[in-house]
Amino acid sequence: MAWNPPGKDCGACGAPTCEAFLARVRRGEKALPDCVFYPTGTAPSRFEGEARHSGRDVLGGEYDFILDPLPGEVSARKIVLPFRPDLVEKWGIAAGDIVVGRPAGAGCPVQHVLSVIRASPVSGLLTCLVVGPEVSRAGEFKDVEAYHIVGFEGIARAVRCEPVFGMRQRFLPGYCMMNLTHTGVVNMILAQSGGLHVRVEDIRL
Protein backbone atom coordinates (compact mmCIF):
# COMPACT_ATOMS: atom_id res chain seq x y z
CA MET A 1 0.00 0.00 0.00
CA ALA A 2 1.38 3.38 -1.03
CA TRP A 3 -0.35 5.34 1.72
CA ASN A 4 -0.56 4.71 5.46
CA PRO A 5 -2.77 6.38 8.08
CA PRO A 6 -1.01 8.80 10.44
CA GLY A 7 -1.08 6.54 13.50
CA LYS A 8 -3.48 8.69 15.51
CA ASP A 9 -5.66 5.68 16.42
CA CYS A 10 -8.70 7.98 16.43
CA GLY A 11 -11.20 5.19 15.72
CA ALA A 12 -13.26 7.30 13.30
CA CYS A 13 -12.94 4.58 10.63
CA GLY A 14 -14.52 1.99 12.93
CA ALA A 15 -11.26 0.19 13.75
CA PRO A 16 -9.74 0.60 17.22
CA THR A 17 -6.23 1.39 15.89
CA CYS A 18 -4.58 2.36 12.62
CA GLU A 19 -2.88 -1.06 12.49
CA ALA A 20 -6.25 -2.78 12.87
CA PHE A 21 -7.61 -0.55 10.10
CA LEU A 22 -4.77 -1.57 7.76
CA ALA A 23 -5.41 -5.23 8.57
CA ARG A 24 -9.04 -4.76 7.55
CA VAL A 25 -7.93 -3.06 4.33
CA ARG A 26 -5.70 -6.05 3.51
CA ARG A 27 -8.65 -8.39 4.09
CA GLY A 28 -10.85 -6.29 1.83
CA GLU A 29 -13.15 -5.24 4.67
CA LYS A 30 -12.16 -1.56 4.47
CA ALA A 31 -10.73 0.79 1.85
CA LEU A 32 -8.04 3.41 2.43
CA PRO A 33 -10.47 6.32 1.81
CA ASP A 34 -12.41 5.12 4.88
CA CYS A 35 -9.70 6.86 6.92
CA VAL A 36 -10.64 10.48 7.60
CA PHE A 37 -6.99 11.46 7.07
CA TYR A 38 -6.83 9.98 3.57
CA PRO A 39 -5.47 12.66 1.17
CA THR A 40 -8.87 13.31 -0.42
CA GLY A 41 -9.55 15.27 2.79
CA THR A 42 -12.98 13.85 3.50
CA ALA A 43 -14.39 10.54 4.58
CA PRO A 44 -16.69 8.78 2.10
CA SER A 45 -20.38 9.09 2.73
CA ARG A 46 -21.96 6.14 4.53
CA PHE A 47 -25.35 7.07 3.15
CA GLU A 48 -27.00 6.62 -0.23
CA GLY A 49 -27.60 10.34 -0.68
CA GLU A 50 -26.80 13.67 0.83
CA ALA A 51 -28.62 14.75 3.97
CA ARG A 52 -31.53 17.03 3.19
CA HIS A 53 -32.38 19.90 5.48
CA SER A 54 -35.65 21.74 5.11
CA GLY A 55 -34.74 24.69 7.31
CA ARG A 56 -37.10 23.45 10.03
CA ASP A 57 -36.39 20.96 12.77
CA VAL A 58 -38.51 18.04 13.97
CA LEU A 59 -40.70 20.43 15.99
CA GLY A 60 -41.14 22.85 13.11
CA GLY A 61 -38.70 25.41 14.50
CA GLU A 62 -36.54 27.35 12.07
CA TYR A 63 -32.75 27.52 12.30
CA ASP A 64 -30.28 30.00 10.88
CA PHE A 65 -27.49 27.67 9.82
CA ILE A 66 -26.25 24.09 9.82
CA LEU A 67 -22.91 23.30 11.41
CA ASP A 68 -20.92 20.98 9.14
CA PRO A 69 -17.54 19.32 9.84
CA LEU A 70 -14.23 21.08 9.39
CA PRO A 71 -12.32 19.75 6.35
CA GLY A 72 -11.14 16.18 6.91
CA GLU A 73 -13.29 15.61 10.00
CA VAL A 74 -16.39 13.46 10.35
CA SER A 75 -18.59 15.82 12.35
CA ALA A 76 -18.65 19.31 13.74
CA ARG A 77 -16.42 19.48 16.81
CA LYS A 78 -18.30 19.13 20.06
CA ILE A 79 -16.87 20.60 23.27
CA VAL A 80 -18.22 18.83 26.33
CA LEU A 81 -17.77 18.88 30.10
CA PRO A 82 -18.52 15.62 31.95
CA PHE A 83 -20.74 15.95 35.01
CA ARG A 84 -17.62 14.73 36.81
CA PRO A 85 -14.78 16.68 35.16
CA ASP A 86 -12.26 15.01 37.50
CA LEU A 87 -12.68 11.79 35.51
CA VAL A 88 -10.67 13.29 32.66
CA GLU A 89 -7.57 13.40 34.86
CA LYS A 90 -8.47 10.34 36.96
CA TRP A 91 -9.00 8.09 33.93
CA GLY A 92 -6.28 9.72 31.84
CA ILE A 93 -8.67 10.57 29.02
CA ALA A 94 -6.59 11.78 26.09
CA ALA A 95 -6.70 12.41 22.34
CA GLY A 96 -7.65 9.23 20.50
CA ASP A 97 -9.84 7.86 23.29
CA ILE A 98 -13.46 6.93 22.68
CA VAL A 99 -15.89 8.39 25.21
CA VAL A 100 -19.59 7.64 25.50
CA GLY A 101 -22.23 9.55 27.39
CA ARG A 102 -25.47 11.45 27.13
CA PRO A 103 -25.72 15.25 26.89
CA ALA A 104 -28.01 15.24 29.91
CA GLY A 105 -27.22 18.85 30.76
CA ALA A 106 -29.11 19.88 27.63
CA GLY A 107 -31.81 17.27 28.14
CA CYS A 108 -30.94 15.18 25.08
CA PRO A 109 -32.11 11.55 25.42
CA VAL A 110 -29.58 10.14 22.93
CA GLN A 111 -26.28 8.62 24.04
CA HIS A 112 -23.37 9.86 21.91
CA VAL A 113 -20.11 8.14 20.99
CA LEU A 114 -17.28 10.65 20.82
CA SER A 115 -13.71 10.47 19.57
CA VAL A 116 -11.55 12.78 21.69
CA ILE A 117 -9.23 15.11 19.80
CA ARG A 118 -8.22 17.25 22.79
CA ALA A 119 -8.58 16.77 26.55
CA SER A 120 -7.79 19.23 29.34
CA PRO A 121 -6.96 17.64 32.71
CA VAL A 122 -7.24 21.11 34.26
CA SER A 123 -10.76 22.10 33.18
CA GLY A 124 -12.05 18.66 32.24
CA LEU A 125 -13.13 19.96 28.83
CA LEU A 126 -13.14 17.43 25.99
CA THR A 127 -13.10 18.48 22.34
CA CYS A 128 -14.52 15.60 20.33
CA LEU A 129 -15.93 14.35 17.06
CA VAL A 130 -19.21 12.44 17.02
CA VAL A 131 -18.38 9.05 15.48
CA GLY A 132 -21.34 6.77 16.13
CA PRO A 133 -21.94 3.49 17.98
CA GLU A 134 -19.98 1.28 15.57
CA VAL A 135 -16.75 2.71 16.95
CA SER A 136 -17.60 1.93 20.58
CA ARG A 137 -18.46 -1.66 19.66
CA ALA A 138 -15.10 -2.14 17.99
CA GLY A 139 -12.91 -1.55 21.02
CA GLU A 140 -12.39 0.01 24.43
CA PHE A 141 -14.30 3.11 25.47
CA LYS A 142 -14.76 5.25 28.58
CA ASP A 143 -18.32 5.85 29.76
CA VAL A 144 -18.68 9.24 31.46
CA GLU A 145 -22.47 8.66 31.55
CA ALA A 146 -23.54 12.32 31.36
CA TYR A 147 -22.07 15.61 30.23
CA HIS A 148 -22.83 19.25 29.50
CA ILE A 149 -22.49 20.58 25.96
CA VAL A 150 -20.22 23.62 26.18
CA GLY A 151 -19.89 24.40 22.49
CA PHE A 152 -19.61 23.38 18.86
CA GLU A 153 -17.12 24.28 16.17
CA GLY A 154 -17.41 23.70 12.44
CA ILE A 155 -18.23 25.17 9.05
CA ALA A 156 -21.50 27.11 8.97
CA ARG A 157 -23.84 26.46 6.06
CA ALA A 158 -26.38 29.29 5.99
CA VAL A 159 -30.08 28.39 5.75
CA ARG A 160 -31.95 31.50 6.91
CA CYS A 161 -28.92 33.70 7.59
CA GLU A 162 -25.19 33.53 8.22
CA PRO A 163 -23.77 33.46 11.75
CA VAL A 164 -23.28 36.87 13.37
CA PHE A 165 -20.53 37.40 15.93
CA GLY A 166 -21.86 37.97 19.45
CA MET A 167 -25.42 36.94 18.62
CA ARG A 168 -27.41 34.04 20.06
CA GLN A 169 -28.59 32.09 17.04
CA ARG A 170 -30.49 28.95 16.22
CA PHE A 171 -28.48 26.25 14.45
CA LEU A 172 -28.54 22.57 13.66
CA PRO A 173 -25.52 20.31 14.18
CA GLY A 174 -25.36 18.43 10.88
CA TYR A 175 -25.22 15.02 12.58
CA CYS A 176 -28.08 15.60 15.06
CA MET A 177 -30.10 12.36 15.08
CA MET A 178 -33.12 14.13 16.55
CA ASN A 179 -33.02 16.93 13.96
CA LEU A 180 -33.53 19.37 16.83
CA THR A 181 -32.54 23.02 16.75
CA HIS A 182 -29.85 24.15 19.21
CA THR A 183 -29.16 27.74 20.23
CA GLY A 184 -25.85 29.27 21.18
CA VAL A 185 -23.76 32.41 21.18
CA VAL A 186 -21.46 32.78 18.17
CA ASN A 187 -18.10 33.78 19.63
CA MET A 188 -15.73 33.04 16.75
CA ILE A 189 -16.02 33.47 12.98
CA LEU A 190 -13.07 32.86 10.67
CA ALA A 191 -13.47 33.24 6.90
CA GLN A 192 -11.74 30.31 5.22
CA SER A 193 -11.67 28.88 1.71
CA GLY A 194 -14.09 26.14 2.76
CA GLY A 195 -16.57 28.56 4.33
CA LEU A 196 -17.10 30.27 7.67
CA HIS A 197 -15.31 28.47 10.50
CA VAL A 198 -17.56 29.12 13.49
CA ARG A 199 -17.52 28.39 17.20
CA VAL A 200 -20.79 28.50 19.16
CA GLU A 201 -20.98 28.30 22.97
CA ASP A 202 -23.56 28.54 25.80
CA ILE A 203 -25.58 25.78 24.14
CA ARG A 204 -29.27 25.27 24.83
CA LEU A 205 -31.97 23.16 23.20
Results as ranks from 00 to 15, higher is better:
residue 83 F to M: 11
residue 83 F to Y: 14
residue 83 F to D: 04
residue 84 R to W: 09
residue 84 R to S: 07
residue 85 P to L: 08
residue 85 P to A: 04
residue 85 P to F: 07
residue 86 D to C: 12
residue 87 L to T: 02
residue 87 L to H: 06
residue 88 V to G: 01
residue 88 V to C: 01
residue 88 V to L: 01
residue 88 V to M: 01
residue 89 E to S: 15
residue 89 E to L: 13
residue 89 E to C: 06
residue 90 K to T: 03
residue 90 K to R: 12
residue 90 K to G: 00
residue 90 K to L: 08
residue 91 W to K: 04
residue 92 G to K: 02
residue 93 I to T: 03
residue 93 I to L: 08
residue 93 I to N: 02
residue 93 I to P: 01
residue 94 A to L: 14
residue 95 A to P: 04
residue 96 G to K: 00
residue 96 G to E: 02
residue 97 D to G: 00
residue 97 D to K: 03
residue 97 D to N: 11
residue 97 D to C: 07
residue 98 I to H: 01
residue 99 V to C: 05
residue 99 V to W: 00
residue 99 V to I: 12
residue 100 V to L: 08
residue 100 V to D: 03
residue 100 V to Y: 04
residue 101 G to P: 03
residue 101 G to L: 06
residue 101 G to V: 02
residue 101 G to H: 00
residue 101 G to S: 01
residue 102 R to C: 14
residue 102 R to P: 01
residue 102 R to T: 15
residue 103 P to R: 05
residue 104 A to Y: 09
residue 104 A to R: 12
residue 104 A to F: 08
residue 104 A to P: 10
residue 104 A to E: 13
residue 104 A to W: 10
residue 105 G to L: 12
residue 105 G to C: 07
residue 105 G to H: 14
residue 105 G to Q: 09
residue 106 A to D: 08
residue 106 A to N: 11
residue 106 A to T: 08
residue 106 A to E: 13
residue 107 G to C: 13
residue 107 G to H: 11
residue 108 C to W: 13
residue 108 C to F: 12
residue 108 C to S: 13
residue 108 C to Q: 06
residue 108 C to H: 08
residue 109 P to C: 01
residue 109 P to V: 02
residue 109 P to I: 02
residue 109 P to D: 01
residue 110 V to D: 14
residue 110 V to S: 09
residue 110 V to H: 10
residue 110 V to K: 15
residue 111 Q to E: 14
residue 112 H to Q: 13
residue 112 H to N: 14
residue 112 H to E: 15
residue 112 H to I: 11
